[in-house]
Design a protein around this nucleic acid. Structure first.
Length: 903
RNA sequence: GCCGGUGUGGCGAAAUGGCAGACGCACAGGACUUAAAAUCCUGGGGCCUUUAAAAGCCGUGUGGGUUCGAGUCCCACCACCGGUACCA
């Protein structure tokens, strides 16, 4: 070991209690209707009526069990939730605190391609390692509810939920998902094929041809988030865009509800803002511009229809379908050259900012529908085909990009908005007052921007020239991957009599659809996903062919928090009564529905957290869950940096391995340190010296109860065999200082100040200051010659959430001394603090002169303003500053301070 | 650029508008020890005067403001971190 003797025998205490908790199922949570054994501590405290106890569902983001093992960042959030789980248990709540594995994913599959080792085996090995590491930290998880997304009994229900999406459509009238049977096909669709195509085009899960990132080297497509600067995150290989037939989920139908319901949930401002930005709702109008002298009409989207009078030119995305039609002969060559140039650019180059704008004139003109003037039509790559209509009306007077472009190509710039306060109108993009915006039948002049928008939109609508429109940045969710290690789709393909392929859902009885066993996990030579290699699996007896794509890793994490509620149910994804109890619809004394607290990193801000909200809303619409949102309160833990203040990474060699810390200091010290570092949500650097500090604190707690037994015994505790640990611990005597004498007023004050501070801090998730309150208690109690057992007992209840192993061990010793049956500390009620004990007879009152501290006086707590002022005027050190001065004013705040204002 | 967050000792940090730096690390001195480790006790924001005690002045990123009183509230900036970006 890197240092001397152990502070206390944590190496014996921690395994002892971890084994005891597991053997006794101490942290098992019970569903309503389940029979709780009468001797289980839950039944001892609450009785057998589970449904009568208020629930507390506290959830961690379950980890992907990577081969690298646990990182110190994982236990940060897990420790915070465990402390709160234990705290709420002590407060009398029925706590659900589960853990599981998000185990589908690319690393195991890549490893399989290289070694031929089945991903299932790699995954099982990694899960076992993660579980060992997590269990060594003494978290109060109910392991009987463990889930694993790669378990067929689990992904059977992932596939089942996919079928719910597949078999539903979004009814814009009710703003809800409804069964596809309720969708009425238009009467003019005669053939069954037409009706099927109509239904398929409305499903929440549908097929489309979309460009995706394809990595030749890895032989697979990658999600956007797996591509960094045009290369694969794993292996740094080049990737290309390539259109492929894909399954999509219609998340855009829920854009408004996903946005609106953010108001109903308690998440950080910044996280909500990230989701808002990702959804990117913008309100505006679509306006039609007639191409001069031609039949074509160009439709644009604008958020500022009020500036229509200032539209002096128009820009199409280079790929816009009308470009070829409108371009005049003499401009054709330069337009095509520009298109070719843009096509060569990577997405990265094209979005590179701070570059001069480029573009080419098509030679065509459009007619501004309000001014009647002809405006030139340009193409430029600053207009994106993928947003809005792929075309804009350019208002260079009041749009930064249009202004830059117009300046560069000498296009006219006119003013149509008057800024407030005499600011320069050129490039003014905010709201103001409309000017120069009138014609015979329409006047916007003098109207504030919002009003002008309404008037012009109504005018356009009345003439059929445009309409109010809302656009979103959010795109439908690309839901298929060409991989092996993921959930197969419960879908088959058939051909109709005309030879056209169509898809069809497998019946529920066919679930789970298992992936086939393969020798080779690579895609087929002709680019088909690896599942296509399994010819037997691929073809059904009736001639149907299975879908060979698999679901993305996000699928399993979209609903795992629901499976925890009823993880072994073979008939349903979750029993409705369990769902109603734990999600709060039918739980007593619970104000918030849903999950009471969800803790995890920010990296999932717009992926997992958006996807899961979407699935939950679909399940809600279809009547499978009782709340519209899953995660009512969410906290992001901050990043833990290396000791050098840099992000931990293998290449920097600053990664801290939890196993090493546990071996040297034990789990309690590790937990305590992770919480003592600073506020949970803050980014903060690791410092192993800091672990030693909290470790010393735990040693002081130990010595509060157990005398230093001399060298011999401590030598022994280094060498005692682990299987004799409990025996060794049992014979260590309690200190003689632990007494039955009644607590003195000062001792009670110390205890109750600690109760008050830890309680208030835990209610607000301020773990670091709660721990410092525990330290203050121990610092004071160390000086006590007699330590009343009743005071120490309450202290252990406060310590238990943070350092459960040590607290349980000392609790057992105290109980044994009192001759009582040892009951687990984990279920001991949280102490109530008595404000009466904290009342002071006299208080220290600062005396200020002109706001500067000059003295501190001792005054009765009940002193009146007049009395305080009189006492303060006599304060020795303050008097010199008052001598010979006129006192203009005296500020007296009873119990706080006295301030003399002198001239 | 836009959005969000954060700036306090050598370090991690703490402070309902009311004694800035609780608690911890590191450091220094002392006790115990043959010695060390561990433990226990004591001291640590800076400047300045003094043998010392004590006092005084300055101090929460910068500049203003409100207030009897500002780390905390308001205005304008600066730096760093995270997210996002030609989204019309």
């Amino acid at each position: 070991m890197a240092f001397g003797r152990r502070q206390y025998p944590f190496h014996l205490i921690e395994p002892k209690w971890q084994q005891a908790w597991e053997a006794r199922e101490t942290f098992r949570a019970w569903n309503p209707g389940e029979a709780v054994p009468a001797d289980h501590p839950f039944a001892v405290r609450h009785g057998a009526e589970v449904a009568a106890v208020p629930k507390y569902y506290i959830l961690d983001m379950f980890p992907y069990p990577s081969g690298a093992g646990l990182h110190v960042g994982h236990p940060e959030g897990y420790t915070a939730t465990d402390i709160l789980a234990r705290y709420q248990r002590a407060r009398g709540r029925h706590v659900l605190h589960p853990m599981g594995w998000d185990a589908f994913g690319l690393p195991a599959e890549q490893y399989a391609i290289q070694t031929g080792r089945h991903p299932r085996l790699t995954t099982a090995k990694n899960v076992a390692n993660f579980k060992r590491q997590i269990q060594a930290l003494g978290f109060s998880y109910d392991w009987s509810r463990e889930v694993n997304t790669t378990d067929p009994e689990y992904f059977k229900w992932t596939q089942w939920i996919f079928l719910r999406l597949y078999n539903s459509w979004f009814n814009p009238a009710s703003r809800k998902a409804e069964p596809i049977e309720s969708l009425r096909c238009p009467a003019d669709l005669r053939s069954e094929g037409e009706r099927r195509a109509y239904r398929d085009s409305r499903r929440l899960a549908y097929v489309s041809e979309a460009p995706v990132w394809w990595c030749e080297e890895l032989g697979t497509v990658l999600a956007n988030e797996e591509v960094i600067d045009g290369r694969s995150e794993r292996g740094n290989h080049p990737v290309v865009r390539r259109p492929m037939r894909q399954w999509m989920l219609r998340i855009t139908a829920y854009a408004d509800r996903l946005l609106e319901d953010l108001e109903t949930i308690d998440w950080s401002h910044s996280l909500k803002e990230m989701q808002r930005n990702w959804i990117g709702r913008s309100e505006g109008a679509e306006v039609d511009f007639q191409v001069a002298g031609r039949a074509e009409v160009v439709r644009v989207f604008t958020t500022r229809p009020d500036t229509l009078f200032g539209a002096t030119y128009m820009v199409l995305a280079p790929e816009h379908r009308l470009v070829d039609q409108v371009t005049v002969a003499e401009q054709r060559a330069s337009v095509q050259a520009y298109q070719a140039e843009v096509a060569k650019k990577s997405d990265l180059e094209r979005t590179e900012l701070a570059k001069a704008k480029t573009g080419v004139f098509t030679g065509a003109y459009a007619i501004n529908p309000v001014t009647g003037g002809q405006i030139p039509i340009w193409i430029a790559d600053y207009v994106l085909l993928s947003y809005g209509t792929g075309a804009i009306m350019a208002v260079p007077g009041h749009d930064t990009r249009d202004f830059e472009f117009a300046t560069q190509f000498h296009l006219p710039i006119v003013q149509v908005v008057q800024p407030p306060g005499g600011r320069d109108w050129r490039g003014f993009v905010e709201e103001g007052t409309a000017v120069n915006s009138s014609r015979a039948d329409l006047s916007l002049d003098g109207l504030p921007t919002p009003e002008a928008k309404r008037v012009i939109t109504a005018w356009l609508e009345s003439r059929g020239l445009g309409q109010r429109t809302i656009h979103y940045k959010l795109r439908d969710w690309l839901f298929s991957r060409q991989r092996y290690w993921g959930e197969p789709f419960p879908i088959v393909w058939r051909k109709d009599f005309s030879g056209r392929a169509y898809h069809e859902a497998l019946p529920e009885s066919a679930l789970p659809v298992l992936p086939p066993e393969l020798e080779d996990y690579k895609p087929t030579p002709d680019g088909q996903p690896p599942l296509a290699r399994a010819k037997d699996w691929l073809h059904l007896a009736d001639g149907a062919i299975r879908e060979t794509n698999t679901m993305p890793q996000w699928a399993g994490s979209c609903w795992y928090y629901l499976r925890y509620l009823d993880p072994k149910n073979p008939r349903r994804f979750c029993d409705p009564s369990a769902e109603a109890y734990w999600m709060g619809a039918r739980s007593p004394g619970v104000a918030t529905p849903g999950i009471d607290l969800y803790v995890g990193g920010t990296e999932h801000a717009v992926l997992h957290l958006l996807y899961a909200r979407f699935w939950h809303k679909v399940l809600f619409d279809l009547g499978h869950v009782s709340t519209p949102e899953p995660f009512y309160k969410l906290v992001n833990q901050g990043l833990i940096l290396g000791e050098d203040g840099q992000k931990m990474s293998k290449s920097l060699g600053n990664v801290v391995n939890p196993d090493d810390i546990l071996a040297d200091y034990g789990a309690d010290a590790f937990r305590l340190y992770e919480m003592f570092m600073g506020p949970l949500e803050m980014t903060k650097p690791w410092n192993t010296k800091g672990v030693e500090g909290v470790y010393r604190f735990l040693g002081r707690v130990w010595r509060l109860f157990v005398d230093e037994a001399g060298e011999t015994e401590f030598e022994q505790n280094l060498t005692v065999a682990p299987d004799r640990g409990a025996e060794f611990l049992a014979q260590l005597p309690l200190s003689n200082a632990v007494s039955d004498s009644p607590a003195s007023p000062a001792q009670l004050k110390t205890l109750h100040a600690c109760i008050q501070k830890t309680t208030e801090d835990l209610d607000d998730f301020r773990f670091n200051t709660a721990i410092s309150a525990l330290m203050v208690f121990v610092n004071e109690a160390t000086a006590w010659e007699l330590r009343p057992a009743a005071v120490l007992r309450d202290f252990l209840v406060l310590l238990q959430p943070f350092a459960p192993h040590l607290a349980e061990e000392l609790w057992e010793k105290l109980r044994a001394r009192a001759g009582g049956e040892p009951c687990p500390l984990a279920y001991a009620p949280w102490p109530r603090f008595d404000p009466a004990l904290l009342v002071e007879d006299t208080m220290e009152i600062p005396v200020q002169v002109n706001g500067k501290l000059r003295d501190v006086i001792r005054a009765p707590a009940a002193a009146t303003q007049t009395e305080l002022e009189a006492l303060a005027a006599q304060a020795e050190k303050a008097r010199p500053f008052l001598a010979g001065k006129t006192i203009r004013k005296v500020v007296v705040v009873p119990r706080k301070l006295v301030n003399f204002v002198v001239g």
